[in-house]
Design a protein around this nucleic acid. Structure first.
Length: 961
RNA sequence: GGACACAUAGCUCAGUUGGUUAGAGCGUCGCAUUCACAUUGCGAAGGUCCCUGGUUCGAGUCCAGGUGUGUCCACCA
């Protein structure tokens, strides 16, 4: 045997142990030894490729590896499938930040070059993360590793999109969406966070009413005042129209009654801002109001804002208020108003709700042929107990979220991600129209004049585009082209649109749109006559680019959670029908932190019940968030984070794993701090030395698989304790009680085995078989929790086999003789009497400050004289006494025995006894009172009453002594 | 506004279905080093189980109300 050092140094072993595991191929379920029928599978929640392993990862890896290793030992065909998430917005942000340092932007690089950069970053990031996962000891099947953005994932994602579209579950709509002006992208509802912020709340005079708002910069074109129909204050105003002095001049405003107005809020009157508020957008649709964009994609004000156009919305607020103040329109300002500011969960930038055309997943529409909506499927999966969530209080939270779920916006205006598999057939030539003119086109305008030559020819097909929004609103063909000068334009020709009365007006209009050009009567113009046909874009939804000319793919990418929603089956080879899907889907357990219950868990349930027609996993185990010792969230800005890699370096992966598991309750946040990890480092070292003692004290190191027969009471005791712990550890792991499993094993190893049995073994001797049997099982039981040290110790058997694929002890126990409940003629539980006796003697020795080395005489008077006699060696050794027949000295008592120790009386002990007697008297008093209570005697179970009487007697007897 | 969780020793937490005098780890204090382990051993001190009321023979545990802390959801003119 290799000699084992006194202290376990994890750094000396962990790397090579992991390599041995990996080289064995046993992480791969196909290569596991033996016949394995039952399967057990977990897909690893894919870490984002953005960065470093943090404690959240360490925590989930610990839980999952425990389950995986346990099931592998139990003989299941066990798969733990690794992967990583491309984390679209997050990753793009990281790379953009890097670019910014060298003064670059993604726009400057262009889509292709930028994506190349991202891919470079991701490639190196993946290597880092892979190594970090290995450092935790994770027994992941690397041969099956997947990435949410690898080629086959793309096929799966596109297939999924197309299928959903074909079923009518994905549609394109013009709606208000959450817009992050910094990420320049939409966000899903649950990607928005709320922060309580103090901001001034303004009350403005708006015609006959006073309106309150926190966002004056969105109110340029508000024309409708809403009041509650039952609001007496405004009853007379309803349906009236007013000329209102407003930010940029007069506005015609109308008062309408709608129950959307909250009488108790502010002044009870509000104006509608259709384009920049979710609620107002719905109202605008209800009353068919114009939806005018005031804030653009950059977060700047549009032309609607007049003099304020082009400025950042948030910056210009003050100036707008000042202007209103000058006009005397500010009623008052509430400076201490607290409201929930919505911000981007990725970058913290305030969200601008704005209207745009996006792709949505319809969660309420019934799926063709199934009669149920996606929402319904997801609710039923949990409601009908097909999926069990631990802890179960999250059921309620899950249902609540689904009940409130609105259609899911899945398109993102970022570059990194799965490109949306939609193609538009664009006519090569585009004719742009100023927004104001578009209605005239619909009304029959058939000619347009242009200051530059668009190079259109007769019969050219053109697309009609809204120059402001870029939206295609129709198509047509050129039927005539004329060249002339501005002065020659026939203003009477209705086909032009008849907007201008004089040539001067026309020239002014030209100048407004083309401020860079000189325009005069002699300026040449081109007049194009066209045929207009209202037409939406031609759309093709499919994986391959369609045949024909002019097809262009949608610029947008998909929400990163769209692809992660497919994770449980995508990773197993979907859309192909694979053996892996048959074997491992639905997966057994989904283990993750509760904070992505909605983002991810719910979406996987939606996607799997829809695509696979089965649940993605049977159990959801939600672990806690790891916080610092003060209960604060760990964060970079607070600098209170614990780096798991540093902890592994200092204390070992095993210690870190234990510290995250023991003392943690699912769903309830846990606090972690270095001292705790150090505590488990101490335990790991204890385990090392327990093993070291056994391995160095036995004559021959060999495997003892069958339970040996106990020779002494102590043997019987430890063997029965071991049998108990073998049973309960399995039960606890399968019942997801990981903390309890760890605690019990800890208690067994340290407080029972090391503190008692090993000390007894030294005294009684001849216990090689039992010690080796205990070690064999101890290593197996601990292996799921601390795989490294147990595997290192297992090597001492020199069996040439790995511990990770041994047989779980419980399987062996089932087939062997039960551990006797008696040993050496005594009931096993009598061993507790011996422990009690020894502790009592130690106690008295310590109180009387007797030198630990000094052997003192002890007389024990009890009915159990035989027990004392048979365990003489043990008592004398552990209590450091000599058992004698008669002596005079200090008496002490146990409930079942009287002890006399040969020591001199001392004042401290006298004091002690006085207190003890006082307590005993008090107890007797209480107990007597209890037993004289008639209702107690009448109603309490007879055995309880009897027990209480016994206790009274015992206490009386003790007092008498 | 709605919902949920937590409150037990100085600190971090266990405490199953109500049932002996409420436990552990860390920390503190005392003693111990030829011993598998000082990353150790033996022992001790330390508690109004947040408050009030109720159910019960009996409540840390069940019920009602309250206080404090935290989280989620909704709203936000």
């Amino acid at each position: 045997m290799k000699s084992l050092p006194k202290i376990y140094q994890p750094q000396d072993y962990e790397l090579s142990i992991y390599q041995k595991w990996e080289a064995s191929g046993f992480f791969n379920p196909d290569k596991l030894p033996g016949k394995r029928k039952k399967t057990f599978s977990i897909v690893l929640p894919p870490p984002n490729v953005t960065g470093q392993l943090h404690l959240g990862h360490a925590s989930m890896l610990s839980y999952q590896d425990i389950m995986i290793r346990y099931h592998r030992l139990k003989g299941d065909k066990t798969l733990w499938l690794p992967g990583m998430d491309h984390a679209a917005i997050a990753t793009q942000n990281v790379v953009e930040k890097e670019l910014k340092k060298s003064g670059l932007s993604r726009q400057a690089l262009g889509r292709e070059n930028f994506l190349e950069r991202v891919n470079g970053f991701v490639a190196s990031s993946r290597i880092t993360i892979r190594n970090q996962l290995k450092k935790m000891g994770s027994s992941l099947d690397w041969s099956r590793e997947r990435f949410t953005l690898d080629e086959s994932s793309s096929v799966a994602v596109q297939t999924a999109f197309v299928k959903m579209h074909d079923d009518g579950l994905i549609y394109r709509g013009y709606r208000i969406v959450n817009w992050c002006p910094r990420c320049k992208s939409t966000l899903a509802d649950d990607e928005v966070e709320y922060r309580e912020t103090k901001a001034p709340f303004y009350y403005f005079k708006y015609g006959p009413v006073i309106i309150g708002t926190a966002r004056p910069e969105t109110k340029f074109s508000d024309k409708i005042i809403i009041v509650h129909p039952k609001d007496k204050r405004y009853r007379d105003l309803v349906n009236q129209e007013f000329e209102v002095e407003w930010i940029n001049g007069k506005i015609r405003a109308k008062v309408m009654a709608d129950e959307a107005a909250d009488m108790a809020m502010g002044t009870g009157a509000m104006t509608i801002t259709p384009a920049h508020s979710f609620a107002d957008f719905d109202l605008a649709k209800k009353y068919n109001l114009e939806i005018k964009e005031i804030i653009n994609a950059d977060g700047r004000l549009t032309a609607v804002a007049g003099e304020f156009a082009g400025q950042k919305a948030a910056v210009v607020r003050k100036a707008i208020v000042d202007k209103l103040a000058q006009k005397g329109l500010v009623d008052h300002i509430d400076e201490d108003y607290v409201h929930n500011l919505s911000v981007c969960y990725r970058c913290g930038t305030p969200i601008e709700p704005r209207p745009s055309k996006q792709w949505f997943v319809d969660v309420n529409k019934k799926i063709p042929g199934r009669g149920k909506s996606l929402k319904r499927l997801a609710i039923e999966a949990v409601k009908k107990n097909k999926i069990k969530i631990i802890p179960d209080r999250f059921n309620k939270i899950y249902f609540q979220w689904l009940d409130n779920l609105r259609d899911w916006c899945v398109s993102r205006q970022i570059w990194y991600g799965h490109r949306i598999p939609v193609w538009y057939q664009k006519t090569n030539k585009k004719m742009g129209f100023y927004e104001k003119v578009i209605p005239q086109v619909y009304q029959g305008k058939t000619k347009t004049y242009r200051l530059r030559d668009h190079d259109f020819k007769v019969d050219d097909k053109v697309a009609f585009e809204n120059s402001q929004s870029g939206e295609i609103f129709g198509e047509g063909e050129i039927i005539d082209v004329k060249t002339m000068t501005v002065g020659q334009i026939d203003l009477q020709d209705k086909a032009h649109g008849a907007t201008y009365q004089t040539v001067e007006e026309l020239i002014q209009a030209f100048k407004k749109h083309h401020p860079d050009k000189e325009v005069a009567r002699q300026t040449p113009v081109w007049i194009y006559e066209y045929k207009f046909k209202e037409n939406k874009e031609k759309i093709y939804v499919g994986i391959e680019q369609p045949q024909g000319e002019g097809w262009v793919q949608d610029e947008d990418t998909l929400d990163t959670w769209f692809s992660s929603g497919l994770w449980t089956f995508l990773t197993l080879g979907w859309p192909d029908k694979t053996r892996d899907i048959k074997d491992f889907h639905p997966t057994s357990v989904l283990e993750t932190m509760y904070d992505i219950l909605f983002f991810w868990v719910a979406r996987m349930i939606i996607m799997s019940t829809y695509f696979m027609k089965e649940i993605p996993f049977k159990t959801v185990y939600l672990h806690a968030m790891v916080k610092d010792k003060q209960g604060r969230k760990m964060s970079k800005s607070l600098g209170n984070g614990i780096d798991p890699l540093e902890m592994i370096e200092r204390f070992g992966a095993d210690a870190l794993r234990l510290s995250m598991i023991i003392g943690a309750t699912p769903g309830t946040d846990m606090r972690l701090y270095e001292e705790k990890i150090a505590g488990y480092r101490n335990f790991v070292n204890k385990l090392w030395n327990i093993s070291r003692y056994i391995l160095t004290s036995v004559k021959e190191i060999k495997r003892v698989v069958e339970a040996p027969q106990p020779a002494t009471l102590a043997d019987g005791w430890i063997l029965s304790e071991l049998a108990k712990i073998i049973k309960s550890t399995g039960e606890n792991i399968e019942g997801f009680k990981f903390s309890l499993a760890g605690e019990e094993l800890y208690e067994f190893s340290w407080n029972k085995l090391a503190d008692w049995y090993l000390e007894i073994a030294k005294l009684e001797g001849g216990k090689d078989e039992i010690l080796l049997y205990i070690l064999e099982n101890l290593l197996k039981l601990w292996h799921p929790f601390c795989p490294f040290i147990t595997e290192v110790l297992w090597e001492s058997f020199e069996s040439g086999e790995l511990l990770m694929v041994q047989e779980w002890p419980e399987l062996k126990i089932k087939n062997s003789k039960p551990v006797p409940s008696r040993a050496e003629g005594f009931e096993i539980r009598n061993f507790d009497l011996l422990r009690e006796l020894i502790t009592a003697v130690r106690n008295i020795r310590a109180e009387n400050k007797i030198d630990a080395r000094q052997i003192i005489d002890l007389t024990v008077k009890a009915k159990e004289q035989k027990l004392i006699e048979a365990n003489k060696v043990l008592i004398e050794g552990l209590a450091r006494v000599k058992l004698v027949e008669q002596t005079s000295g200090r008496p002490a008592s146990l409930p079942w025995a009287e002890l006399i120790l040969d020591i001199k009386a001392n004042p401290e002990l006298e004091k002690k006894r006085a207190v003890e007697i006082k307590n005993l008297r008090r107890y007797l008093e209480i107990q007597t009172k209890k037993l004289s209570d008639a209702s107690f005697i009448k109603k309490a179970p007879a055995e309880i009453v009897e027990q209480e009487r016994e206790k009274l007697k015992e206490a009386q007897a003790r007092l008498d002594k």
